[in-house]
Nucleic acid binder design. Sequence first.
RNA 1: GGCCUGUUCGUCUAAGUGGCGAGGACGCAAGAUUUUCAUUCUUGAAACAUGGGUUCAAAUCCCGUACAGGCUACCA
Length: 506
Amino acid sequence: MEKKVRVRFAPSPTGGLHLGGMRTVLYNYLFAKQNKGDFILRIEDTDQSRFVTGAERYIFDCLKWAGLEPDESPIHRGNYGPYRQSERKEIYRKYAEQLVADGFAYYAFDTPEELEKMRQDFKTGKNPSPQYDHELRNKMKNSLTLGEDEVRRFISEEIPYVIRIKMPEKELVSFNDMIRGEIHFDTSLVDDKVLLKADGMPTYHLAVVVDDYLMKITHAFRGEEWLSSAPVHILLWKYLGWKKEMPQWAHLPLILGPNGKLSKRDGAQFGFPVFAMNWNDPKNGEMTEGFKEKGFLPEAFINFLALLGWNDGTEQEIFTKEELIQRFSMERVHSGGAKFDYEKAKWFNHEWIKRKESQDLKPAVRNILVEKSIAEIDDQLLDKVISLVKDRCTLLTDFYDQSVFFFRTPDQYDLTSVQPKWGESKKLFFSEIIRNYELNTDWSATVLETNFKEIAAANKIKPGEVLSTFRIMLVGGKFGPGVFDIAAILGKDNTIQRIKKALTIF
RNA sequence: GGCCUGUUCGUCUAAGUGGCGAGGACGCAAGAUUUUCAUUCUUGAAACAUGGGUUCAAAUCCCGUACAGGCUACCA
């Protein structure tokens, strides 16, 4: 029987969730759903000095907004908890000690100052950053160099120590990456990573393999930045005796900003979001804008994220979540890093807005209008307005500019476009329009248009000369849907009132 | 410096195991439609990092070089 697929996303709650993290979530989610497996969210909060209040909550909010909710997590329950590593603290020491007992790890008593001194002392032009490796460990203060008695004494005296993995002097470690294929490492070049810190917390290296094992993870997807520490993890799986249970790895390519690795600075600098949702940093009060607040639809967000490094081999670009679940495959993920293109991201959003029914857009649009203090929005009116203007909205926030005039009489007019052509004959024309429209019983766009043109002809005015003026009267500027469609939605009283008002101003 | 990973139009990418005049999309440019703006439609410019091999044939396989990115913490 095949093992049930279980994947996990394991962020550390230290700040905003950026594009790369969200894409890792997405790929995990798609893979899990495609294989009828479980998607687990595990909080990697082993570094207590980096704790940020609200960061965990924020992660959940982002996943919920994007529609990528986990099956198991600190707040979704599950049978493999707890799902916060800080709450699993007691679990890890046992395994670290086991590794020491089996000769795969050792105690190290070097203080941070001593480590710093070592790095200074052994630094050369050829080797700017010396590692605590199979050679240097012989010159340091650890259970390999100290006598057994001394080690016992140190421990009983509660001298702080860490547990480090003992990398083999010369061994070839290989594994098969789902995206990159066979990858090899020479252990003589890898350092003795700390597994258990002096405060008793595990480092990522220990925690990730212990938890992946205990949580029965079958496939481990993470960013490319983890590739170089993969040999440590592979060896740990072996040393702990779990080699047969080791998940399949896939190291996802990085998402790059305009110049190198995507950073939140890029957002501020280039005017696009990098986080899924607004992130308020409690430490400095700074707010970083998110895709949600910028006006992105979750469907579009997921869609462009999925295509950033993956495609199904066809020329299709617009995918629903269901289609993505069906078509996704890790093997088709491109191995090179991808530079994020905000213009294309906006195009995806535009496509999604155009495709969606105004019904489905309504809640989000209503929120945006309410935020701009447009109260009392008639539901039916909103429906009509949305379907009329959505083609010209790239971001949800565009709905404001594109539809304010339905809810508010313009108080500013594009006068420079009106006045050069303005005159008595035009005034006369519009008073006639008012008279005609007042008597109008069928208030539909087509009727309004024919009447308008007839009156223009009777006055020997080309419709083109007054059409844009009419638009400015109703809207304030030269934009928006067809004028008669607007007038039809505005209704008789409102339309006539706006013409009258404009007549007093022009 | 060392190790690891990458490298097709400006950007995202396609081209199952070598046979293309290198395809699509975003963006850009031009035109048509829309008596506004946007949509829509048509057209166009635009790429195999580089040097060697292997082969009748290489974007595709091999080696070197360059460039880019990641890692090199008691951070993840």
